[in-house]
Amino acid sequence: MEKFSTLLSPAIPLVQENVDTDQIIPARFLKATSREGFGEHLFKDWRFDEQGHPKSDFILNNSEYSGSILVAGENFGCGSSREHAAWALVDYGFKAVVSSYFADIFKGNALNNGLLPVQVSPSSLKELLAAIQSNPMTGIEIDLEAQLLRVPEIGIQEHFEINPYKKTCLINGYDDIDFLLSQKEKISAFELKHIEF
């Protein structure tokens, strides 16, 4: 997993709420057996028409917007547990997603792949989306160490929450398996006294 420290980038505004993982990566693209290459199919049916031509009204096809931060409407990533959604966002080039609410499984999957979910207040999200829409080059700074999201242009500085353990993992590029494997003795000891029918 890639290490995450500070990110400074313009952002892409996706105003829809309740974006589900079937939109992020439709099921018919889940047949791959590796983690690579999913970016090509990110938001496939919103991004491309049936002939495979980019749809001009979809935000990822608007050349005014760029950057490695996706700013999305409330309840991003609901639905299926497919980690392919996080893989697709990372493979496409996103390093962080900002929203006012994330679905649980998506949030966990994102953190396990070095993709930082940044939860901000609904009012900040609204301001942020408006600022990006009026100036696509609006710079957003995400400082993981300080747990701060800053948008100097509109005077936003907001603290965001992250589990301290997951924060350490992201900063160092560690994953949970390394940690769990180091706990094997404790796990075996637990199993000995664990009663199960």
């Binding site: 547990s81 980690e83 499984i105 494997l181």
Partner: peptide, 16 residues
């Protein structure tokens, strides 16, 4: 759970 967690459970029978 996601696939990274599927791997965690395979490896350690636990989840964090």
């Amino acid at each position: 759970i996601g696939t990274s967690q599927v791997e965690q459970v395979m490896a350690s029978q636990c989840l964090l």
